[in-house]
């Protein structure tokens, strides 16, 4: 083995592998180089050991667990979607709607990804009028935070019962409250529903 061949093995030699390297016994310069590399590797191992206890703060596990439960822990396993956000958003949105006391039929919901917006390029709920509706027809949900100008929002389409319209102050014919209606729900970066827009072909509720 010559010096070049010896050097070719240096990363492995320095990392502690121990192939035949009699060359070091014959070449003091290479032996010295190897010794320096091994000391460096030893120092790096010490550094790694000192850092081994460093990890993400505990709150991150809690946050992710919450996201997991919202997204991937339904009663019945669902096939994975092409995009994760709408699934997560659906769960969050439904949770918000349920929290408002709206009867929702979960198995009838079909979630269709619509878009992922930057709030600066889409509806800014801060500009909602007093009656709660903006130019695009989104109605701010009761007690929901307005979307700030630099917040990212997600919009998902889902099927709700028309009783959900009552929550935002829309009139619904009593004999139609249990009928399904398509809706777009706007979710803030925290995954919570902020606003809703009902889609109705005939314009009646």
């Amino acid at each position: 083995m010559n010096c070049a061949e010896f050097w070719n093995q240096m990363p492995e030699l320095a990392s502690g592998a121990n192939p035949e390297h009699n060359h070091a016994a014959e070449c003091p310069a290479c032996a010295a180089l190897l010794e320096r590399q091994r000391r460096l590797a030893s120092g790096l191992r010490t550094m790694a050991g000192d850092m081994r206890s460093v990890g993400a703060p505990p709150r991150l596990e809690s946050n992710l667990l919450e996201a997991f439960r919202s997204q991937l822990a339904p009663a019945a396993p669902r096939p994975m979607r092409a995009r994760w956000t709408p699934v997560f958003s659906w769960a969050a949105a439904v949770a918000a709607v349920i929290a408002m006391g709206v009867a929702v039929a979960p198995r009838r919901h079909s979630v269709v990804p619509v878009t992922h917006h930057s709030a600066s390029s889409v509806v800014e709920l801060a500009s909602l009028t007093d009656d709660g509706a903006d130019d695009d027809g989104f109605i701010l949900l009761p007690n929901a935070e307005r979307v700030g100008p630099n917040e990212d929002v997600h919009v998902v389409q889902m099927e709700l019962t028309r009783s959900a319209m009552l929550v935002v102050g829309l009139d619904v014919s009593p004999d139609r409250v249990s009928e399904p209606v398509q809706a777009e729900v706007m979710l803030g970066p925290d995954g919570l529903a902020r606003a809703v827009k009902f889609l109705d072909d005939d314009g009646t509720y």
Partner: peptide
């Protein structure tokens, strides 16, 4: 930043694909 990156890595695992 490290916390944000770690969070995003695991959120990626929760995505469909």
């Amino acid at each position: 930043t490290a916390e944000d990156i770690t969070q995003e890595v695991f959120l990626t695992l929760l995505r469909g694909e």
